[in-house]
Write a protein that binds this DNA or RNA. Sequence first.
DNA 1: GTGGGGCCTG
DNA 2: CAGGCCCCAC
Length: 789
Amino acid sequence: MPDHDSDSFLNRQTKRRRVDIGVKRTVGSTASSTVAAVTATTDNIARAKAAIFSAMNSLSSHSHHGSDTDSMECSVVQPHGGPGVVSASDNESKSNVLRKLLKRANSYEDAMMPFPGTTIISQLLKNNMAKNGGGGDAGFPGSGLSNASPDAPQEDACSNSSQDSTPPECMSPFGRPHGLATFDIERLNDEHMRAKRARVENIIRGMSHSPSVVIPAQPPSSPRGGEVCGGSSRENKRKQRLPQQQQQSFTQLVCQRKEQKQEERRQLKLQLEDMQKQLRQLQEKFFQIYDSTDDSEHNDLHNDLHNDIGNMSEDSPSRSDAAADDRGGDDLRSDNEMSDLDPGHFLDRARALLQEQALLADGEKPRREGISRSKAPGGLSSSMHAEGKQLAETLKQELNSAMTQVVDTVVKVFAKPPRPPPQQAFHPLSIPPERFPTVNGDNPNFHTTNPRLQCFGDVIIPNPLDSFANMPGMPGATNDQTEALPLVVRKTPSEHHQSSAVGAQGGHHHPALHPSSLSASMGFSPPSFRHPFPLPLMGYPFQSPLGAPTGGYPGKEHSSPDSMDLSRETTSLRTKMTSGHHLGHHHRSCSPAHPGSTAEGLSLSLIKSECGDLQDMSDISPYPGSNIQEGLSPNHLKKAKLMFFYTRYPSSNMLKMFFSDVKFNRCITSQLIKWFSNFREFYYIQMEKFARQAINDGVTGSEELSVSRDCELFRALNMHYNKANDFEVPDRFLEVAEVTLREFFNAIVAGKDVDPSWKKAIYKVICKLDSEVPEVFKSPNCLQELLHE
DNA sequence: GTGGGGCCTG
DNA sequence: CAGGCCCCAC
């Protein structure tokens, strides 16, 4: 290793404090040079693309900046307060819902006073709407939702004003007696739209008489003007952009219909998700309430509920077994019946159900309490348990049907638009980490389910940040990719096939050079992108927590104690190699004719694996049936950390040997190397820190320094590389750590740290202290073997 | 030109 | 921990 401390080098270092050590350049040079020859070309292309796209993206950002910021303005969908607002906490509100539901069975009029002429579902919806607007999710409508539609502000303003003054206007789809009962949301939407259209046309007519009107009938300066917070300035910005206010008004009006539709959709989705949440809440409540009943009963109920939940996303939901078997062709089984259901019917039906089922339950398995009395004519005097259970059945059916229809309707609505509807973005961060268990393929669906798409289904939480697909040319898309990009899971099988084919025929041609192969190279099929919502909706995992940040759902997919950590790490693991590479996709998809394609490209490239197009194209059949996987898992990270106890500077060849269960490509190699680089960084930082601390503590000679398993330095290191402390750190590592600490100590004492590259000498010493990594680390199952010892 | 190392930043 | 950047050796 030549000491490259030339003057020029030092000069540069004064800028960046370069401390290149230049070690370890010999070990893997032969093998890696061949790899280098293969990958050199693509890498250059990628870099060029990245540069070009950066420029274009910035242009795009500028050109769209106005509209984007506009979309952020005036974003408050719901006003505070209002008659239907459930301002209590989530739990409280949900228990309130349950209470109301149960209460209504006894006294319909009483409980339904605030919401006359509505069904349970409508009340739920109304609560949800109020709650959503109430501010618990403050902020999300602002960016995430509004971004969905650049023109949303006016609609939002409309929502504000409408709900302030005439709540039924915006709520009408769910507030009208029959509307909600039938759940024919689509029809109601039309109705609703007609009403709004009439209003708009009136406005237009009025406008023609008063050209100076700025934003007719859209009082963004509604009582909630202040609430729009910051929106006013942005709004002004947009006004300045437009030459004529009248023109602007007209344009806005033209856009208004779109916005209205989008607003409807948003609200539908909001309601849907909250209904789902509350449905789960109901489940929980029922389980708790009837926990005291005998086990079989409990299990039956439990299963029924779960079955119903599971069936909810199906077109023809299966009713609960009890209802189906007991009453055969009971009218409750008819979906049409649901349309005619009104609160009164519901109550009657619930009572009838109570009677019937109480009798049946009595006949089947008489219980010790209350059952005898339930025999009494009328059966309404049955015990709370029996009554509640049967009410539960009824509720289940109600909810089931309602959910089915709502889902169908929403799916229909969202399948309609020819272009991507303003999707809500879904917060990837809200996904419980265990949702994407590991990258190992432990989850059989993991390789066939695009986690990004799964995000859509799992989390129905609008994300103001992760709105990559929301808005055309959304400038923030590039940096808003915050989490959980799949490095490992690069494509579904079909996608993989396509991509591979492209790679095979394209040779060195980057997929970006083939417009026709865009979607293939993106690993994404346009149709599914056009309908991002229906797909995940149908696959909505009702059984799993609805992105409830509060947790509380016991179901965990992992039993390993540190599975949470590992899973969490997994998500971050997948973020590798996005920036430089997906920029290429962005550039590729940045068609001038389709400004929105930039956003699409973003999302597409995010969905696709970042390294897929850069990896060896000859790799068409990825180790079928073998244990070799395409990505690094949290276990690999853990293993790498343990390996760090032996080697601080592993060569790429060594990494390939010790990670033989990973299919290596440039990305994997880079990532592994980066891991060790990060390990070293932490290691050296700790060393410097403790060396300085020792100096401050009055230590005069490095001989006084030692690293034992008790010392704080070791604990810090062990916590970092061996968090679970389930691995016995080799003594050799203690020695190396001690040497390192002394080196730092001596260097600092000697005042060498004034030299920007003062650490380089230390690195050169430490890099020679690597020891052999035990053979056991070559085993793919080394973690088990190591940790079981 | 590429791989790999370190530094800085988020 | 990853991305970006710079640097150097090969």
